[in-house]
Simulated scan of single mutants.
Amino acid sequence: MPFSDPKYRRSQRATPLLPKDRGGAGGEFDGASFTGAVFNLSTTIVGAGIMALPATLKQLGAIPGLITILLAGMLTGKSIEIILRFSKAAKTGSYSGLAADAFSGAGRNILQLCIVMNNVGMLVVYMIIIGIAL
């Protein structure tokens, strides 16, 4: 098998995942982009939606389930509109900045703690789903 031969393998030192110098930034990593963040968030939302929608319809039935999904969509759209309106008024570009403007530094810290707890909970749910599927 040719891939088991050491001369066909790539050296880990020869091809690092993140280059040390990107041509003038002094070794700082600036590879994250707004587009990448949007796609990352979209895949997370779609992944959670794929798990939640069938369970919603199974528990509620077809008509109440669809009404609940439409109502949740309308409430989500309205809440995004309100968040965007107030972020423009507060002249901030981040959700944590908006929380800090509305609730001071303690509100920002509570928001960040809630985000961490939400992400850890989603990781646990995904691990449970993977454990059941395998």
Results as ranks from 00 to 15, higher is better:
residue 2 P to A: 07
residue 2 P to F: 04
residue 3 F to V: 04
residue 4 S to T: 14
residue 5 D to V: 13
residue 5 D to T: 05
residue 7 K to S: 08
residue 9 R to A: 05
residue 9 R to S: 04
residue 10 R to C: 09
residue 13 R to C: 09
residue 13 R to Q: 15
residue 13 R to V: 14
residue 14 A to Y: 05
residue 14 A to G: 11
residue 19 P to G: 09
residue 20 K to C: 08
residue 21 D to K: 02
residue 21 D to V: 01
residue 23 G to H: 06
residue 23 G to Q: 02
residue 24 G to T: 00
residue 28 E to L: 07
residue 29 F to C: 10
residue 29 F to A: 09
residue 30 D to C: 11
residue 31 G to M: 00
residue 32 A to G: 08
residue 36 G to W: 03
residue 37 A to Y: 01
residue 38 V to T: 03
residue 38 V to H: 07
residue 38 V to N: 05
residue 40 N to Q: 10
residue 41 L to V: 05
residue 43 T to K: 08
residue 44 T to V: 13
residue 45 I to H: 10
residue 46 V to W: 01
residue 47 G to V: 01
residue 52 A to T: 06
residue 52 A to V: 11
residue 52 A to M: 04
residue 54 P to Y: 03
residue 54 P to H: 04
residue 54 P to L: 00
residue 56 T to C: 11
residue 56 T to E: 02
residue 57 L to E: 00
residue 57 L to D: 01
residue 60 L to P: 04
residue 60 L to V: 02
residue 61 G to P: 01
residue 61 G to Y: 01
residue 63 I to A: 02
residue 64 P to S: 01
residue 65 G to F: 01
residue 65 G to R: 00
residue 66 L to M: 07
residue 66 L to T: 03
residue 68 T to P: 01
residue 70 L to S: 07
residue 71 L to W: 03
residue 71 L to D: 07
residue 71 L to T: 08
residue 72 A to Q: 10
residue 77 G to Q: 03
residue 77 G to A: 04
residue 80 I to L: 14
residue 80 I to W: 14
residue 80 I to P: 08
residue 81 E to S: 06
residue 81 E to N: 08
residue 84 L to I: 09
residue 85 R to Y: 11
residue 85 R to F: 11
residue 86 F to C: 11
residue 86 F to P: 07
residue 86 F to Y: 14
residue 87 S to T: 08
residue 89 A to W: 09
residue 93 G to H: 03
residue 93 G to E: 03
residue 94 S to G: 03
residue 94 S to V: 12
residue 95 Y to Q: 10
residue 96 S to M: 14
residue 101 D to N: 14
residue 103 F to A: 07
residue 103 F to T: 01
residue 105 G to C: 09
residue 113 L to Y: 08
residue 114 C to Y: 11
residue 118 N to M: 15
residue 119 N to E: 13
residue 121 G to Y: 13
residue 121 G to I: 04
residue 126 Y to R: 13
residue 128 I to N: 15
residue 128 I to D: 15
residue 128 I to K: 15
residue 129 I to H: 12
residue 131 G to R: 02
residue 133 A to T: 07
